[in-house]
Design a protein around this nucleic acid. Sequence first.
DNA 1: TATTGTTATACTCTATAACTATA
DNA 2: TATAGTTATAGAGTATAACAATA
Lengths: 148, 148
Amino acid sequence: MSDVKGAAELRATIVFNLGTLGAVAADRFAARVEALGLKPKHAGLLAALDSGPAVSQQELAKRLGVAPSLVVALADQLQELGAVERVRDSEDRRRQVLSLTAEGRALLSRCADAAQDLDAELTADLNATQRDALEHALNLLGRRHLPH
Amino acid sequence: MSDVKGAAELRATIVFNLGTLGAVAADRFAARVEALGLKPKHAGLLAALDSGPAVSQQELAKRLGVAPSLVVALADQLQELGAVERVRDSEDRRRQVLSLTAEGRALLSRCADAAQDLDAELTADLNATQRDALEHALNLLGRRHLPH
DNA sequence: TATTGTTATACTCTATAACTATA
DNA sequence: TATAGTTATAGAGTATAACAATA
């Protein structure tokens, strides 16, 4: 069974298709949210803020798997858009606590709209069973392999 | 139905999970093939060469969706590894025709091994039915949305 | 002294533009 | 003049390192 494998075997793998289709998906999502003045990472930050209680920027960086300095830049830009507010934590004045504004929630909602639109576009030639199975399997993998 | 959507709705989408899991998959694949002296794009080039008849570098660039100058760099590195050969086309001496060597085929095979290993790792907590459905759906999407 | 946020710098990846050889 | 390949340059994105304020 140590057969020599070629392009066909590589292309058939889940990892290969996840990686390449993931890049396509990310590009299309980026194109959609660009109209909102956002990059995908901004949407990620908005989602992280909407998910749980207010946290420090350091904590956000860990959740998102990015450098703290990047959180600073993303938050700066979101603040400029009026999407987030920075409030110094009165208990530990080193901490900047980020929170979503109404505008931030509206932007996040429009990101979700864009993602749902793209889902329909991407899965147009899957039948309902296939689509549900894909959605379910990806949600399972997400829960297992993504930070949350 | 113009309900305000939040992080939960965004995270549940296929596009979101494809994008984020795709990045995870790509990172893991990159880590594996690094031991072979390769980056994912090198594997992509090897696979493209294995897929069809010999073509020019320009044609390769179109197939891979990258700039021609990147194909030059990738091919340089693969040639250094003894994985590809460059032969001037005798009919049009501007063209460099790339072809896989035995070493190149061996490297590609090891890339496929790595991808199959990662598949098992990634889908460890899916049952056989879920796994097959995921694999099938991704292959369908790949045929529809990736160049080939 | 350690930690949070910030700023400054550097690195990786890849595209665009300029150049060479051939057509 | 146009095209294949190559080389040089530039930009986007993000990390690492240095710094300031607070603990």
